[in-house]
Nucleic acid binder design. Sequence first.
DNA 1: AAGTGGTCTAGACCACGTA
DNA 2: ACGTGGTCTAGACCACTTG
Lengths: 254, 254
Amino acid sequence: MSQDTSSLDQPFPLAVTIDRASGTPLHLQVSEPISRMILGGELVPGQLLEDEVTLAERLQVSRPTVRRAFQDLVNDGLLSRRRGIGTRVTLPHIHRKIALSSLYDDLLSDGITPRTDVLSYEVRLADADIAEELGCARNDEIVVIERLRWSDGHPLATMKHTLPADCAPTLTELTQTGLYRGMAERGVKPMSAIQTVGAKVASEREADLLHLETGSPLLTAERTAFTEDGRIVDLGKHMYDAARYQVTFTLLAE
Amino acid sequence: MSQDTSSLDQPFPLAVTIDRASGTPLHLQVSEPISRMILGGELVPGQLLEDEVTLAERLQVSRPTVRRAFQDLVNDGLLSRRRGIGTRVTLPHIHRKIALSSLYDDLLSDGITPRTDVLSYEVRLADADIAEELGCARNDEIVVIERLRWSDGHPLATMKHTLPADCAPTLTELTQTGLYRGMAERGVKPMSAIQTVGAKVASEREADLLHLETGSPLLTAERTAFTEDGRIVDLGKHMYDAARYQVTFTLLAE
DNA sequence: AAGTGGTCTAGACCACGTA
DNA sequence: ACGTGGTCTAGACCACTTG
C-alpha cells in the first residue's frame, strides 16, 4: 500500500523564486521555470502541482498572478487543470505541440542545417498569376530561388521560393546565411504561414536532384508565409524524399 | 482624403448584450458574439474594436472581464492587440487555424461522410509489438478494423484501425454509425492525437482498393489518439489518394 | 465539510505608440 | 500629453470533487 500514494499525487515543491526588481513580469517569473522543468523532463507527466492559493502565498504574489501563469501553461498544452482536482502536468504527447514539426523548423531556422545548395537565383517581373499568389502588382520585381537541402550526406529536399524582390537576400547573403536570416536582415519577419502537405511521385528531374529513382514517393509542401501586417513574403514549394522525411503534429479535440 | 479615415479605423460598435441572469460566464457573453461575427464575416479583418475600458463601461462589467474575453480571442487567433494602438481583427489566413484540416474532421466527425465500407473486422490478442504501441498488456483483446472511405463516387482512402476491444464498437454499430460515434457510445472520447504524415507509392493491393495504378502516389497518415486521461484508444494507419487529398494547416512563429 | 479551480470586482500603476 | 494595452493587487463568491 505504500505505493498507493504515488509521489505524483504529492504537490511538487516548485523551485520558483520571484525577483521584484527584475523587469520581467511576475507571471512570467512563475510560468517560465515551470515550462522549462516540464520540457526538460524534470517535471514528469501526471505530476501534481501546488494549488494556486498556496503557491501565491508562498511566492508572495497575488492569486490572479499565479492564475495567469498557470493559464498560459494550460494554453501551451503543458498543464491541465480540473476544478476540485488540481493542476497536473499533461501527458507527454501533448508537449510535442510545442516542438512542432521539422517543417516548422525550416520556416525560421534554416542556415543551421549542414548544407543547402543554391541551384538558381533569378530576378523576374511578376506575371498575372504570380502577382495574384503573392498579393503584389503585375510587373513588380520578384526573386525566384531554387535550393537543394542536404542531410547526412544525401539530398533531402528541393525547395523553390518566390518572393518580392525587396524581401529577398542577395545571392551572396543567401549562400552564406540562409534565406530566413537574409530576410530578417531586411526587417522582414514571417509571423505565420499556411501550409498544404501532399504527395507525388518523382519526375525524372526531381529524381536526379534527390538521387532517387524516377517514380519514388515525394512529400510535397506548399507554404505561404505572412508578416504580422499580412504581407505575403514567401511562396515556398518544396519536395522531400518521403523515405527520409515526414511531418508530425498534434491535434486537439474542440 | 475622405477615404483616409477608413471605417476600419473607427471602433466597431459591437452589438453585445449582457444577461447577468443567464448562467453563462460574462467573459463568454462578450467573446462569443465577437467570435461569431468574425467567423461569420460580419467583422472584417483589420477592423478596429472598441478599447477595453470603454467596452467595459458600456457593458457594465469590469475591465478584467473584458480583458479575459479579448485575450481568449487573441489566443484563438481572431484578434491581435498592440499596446498604444488598439485591438483589431486579424488577417483572414490566421482564421484557418480554427477550421483545421480535413484529417482533423475525420478524427471526430465521421459517419457523416457519404460512404465508408468495412473491409474487415477482426478480434485478436495483442502481441508484444501491438501491446507496446497501444500501451496495453500482452494478450489483451484488441480489434483490428479495415475500412474504405469513398467520396464523390470514388474510393478516397484506406483506413486501418487498431484499438482495445473495450473501446471498439461492434461490427453492426461500426457499419451503421461510424467508428468515433461507436466509441463515444462506450464513453470513449479521444481528446487529442498525434499524427505523422508521409508519402508512399501504391502497392498492388492498395492500388486495387483505391482504383489507382500501382505506383500512384499516396499520402499516409499514422495517428495515435488519446483520451483525456492519456489512454491510447486508437491507432490509425491511413492511406489517401494523393491526387484527391491534401492536408492544410497553419503555422505560427514562436 | 474541506479543498480545488472558475469567475468577478474596483481599483492602481506602468510601458508603449502617437500626436 | 494622451490613449492604448500590460501588469498587479486583495479581496469575494461560486461550482465541482472528494472524503
